[in-house]
């Protein structure tokens, strides 16, 4: 035997899925809402997303280079963060604000804690929270979508008409007057680039489910909790079912439940932990929408639950193999 044989620990075969393939799948899923966002909010939406992605990748590259760490931009995770960050911003946000957000997401939230897999908060959401409290003048204006009756033009710019979102009406305890449920499904409402159409986000989520990137546990327990609470505790004089449907279709809830709360690093790994986490997100979202002063219900509820992941993983540990449920009750002595 001339060439040496490789000796390594078992297993000797491996599933083809890698971090890169997972992140690429998420990017593909995010292309659906990006296409629709570009249709409704003109090319500025696409440019804003590109600036966000590019800044995230560049900040990640520069940080790792400066600290002489391995280059990780090939794992595609910075691209995902960039897309998600842009999706949570209104199309009228200035480019420089997006760059500041990208810096906060990649350098402060992700890399300072050790990079991919080590951060304890979702980078895109934390950056959005940072921008919302730092630059409310830019992040609080929502543009009406364009409907392109005369055909799509690559050169038109959206009119920066600020409009009240359906969520703002819901906070008043009434159903939105100008928008019906169909508008919410197809995204014909003012809002952020990537969160206007519930339907297209669900399609992206189905792609992730089909590719086994995510499981239904977090999105279903999150949306289910919000649906249940808004149905049971709908305001007086408003149809419960209508209020419930408007509640789960408006704001950033779909984007949050499908793409943000399911972020691997900042959600529990145990099955029960994931369900508890989804329920917790749902409870906080409804509480903030009902009793909070700010409209940031989804963003802050996920960020708060992010900080509880360590505890939820412990609480959600499975029953030990071969030990019957509630075995501690049957233990003799101590």
């Amino acid at each position: 035997m001339d060439a040496p044989l490789t000796v390594s620990s078992s297993p000797h075969i491996h599933d083809e899925e890698s971090i890169r393939s997972i992140m690429t799948d998420v990017c593909i899923a995010l292309l659906f809402p990006l296409a629709l966002g570009t249709y409704y909010f003109e090319m500025k939406a696409l440019y804003l997303t590109l600036v966000s992605v590019l800044s995230c990748v560049v900040f990640e590259f520069l940080y790792r280079k400066a600290l002489k760490k391995t280059n990780t931009i090939r794992d595609m995770s910075a691209v995902v963060t960039g897309m998600l960050l842009a999706f949570t911003l209104p199309v009228s946000t200035p480019y420089w604000v997006v760059v500041v957000g990208a810096f906060f997401a990649i350098v402060v939230v992700k890399q300072l804690y050790g990079g991919l897999g080590k951060n304890f908060m979702n980078p895109a959401l934390a950056a959005r929270a940072f921008l919302v409290v730092s630059f409310p003048a830019y992040t609080g204006i929502f543009t009406e979508p364009t409907f392109h009756e005369d055909g799509f033009s690559f050169f038109s710019t959206p009119d920066a008409i600020s409009a009240a979102t359906p969520l703002a009406s819901l906070k008043q305890g009434v159903l939105p007057e100008n928008y019906d449920l169909q508008n919410l499904l197809f995204g014909e409402i003012p809002g952020c680039i990537g969160e206007v159409s519930a339907l297209i986000l669900i399609i992206g989520g189905l792609w992730l489910l089909a590719r086994r990137v995510i499981t239904p546990r977090v999105p279903v327990s999150y949306l289910g909790t919000v649906a249940l609470l808004t149905f049971v505790f709908s305001p007086a004089g408003v149809d419960s079912l209508q209020f419930m449907l408007y509640s789960i279709l408006s704001g950033g809830l779909m984007l949050g439940a499908i793409f943000m709360a399911t972020d691997y690093t900042t959600c529990p790994v145990t099955k029960r932990g994931q369900i508890l986490y989804g329920i917790g997100c749902g409870l906080l979202t409804v509480f903030i929408r009902y009793f909070g002063k700010m409209p940031e219900s989804v963003c802050f509820s996920i960020l708060i639950m992010n900080t509880l992941v360590w505890m939820l993983d412990k609480a959600g540990r499975a029953r030990r193999f071969g030990v019957r449920p509630f075995a501690f009750l049957f233990k003799k002595g101590g």
Partner: peptide, 28 residues
């Protein structure tokens, strides 16, 4: 075919927990 994959990083995806037949948490 020698699987000389370099160890990367744990992204906490939880797939190891899902597939463990003994219901352990391999990542922990």
């Amino acid at each position: 075919e020698v699987n000389a994959s370099r160890e990367q990083t744990c992204i906490r995806c939880g797939k190891c927990v899902q597939v463990c037949p003994m219901k352990l948490e391999p990542t922990y």
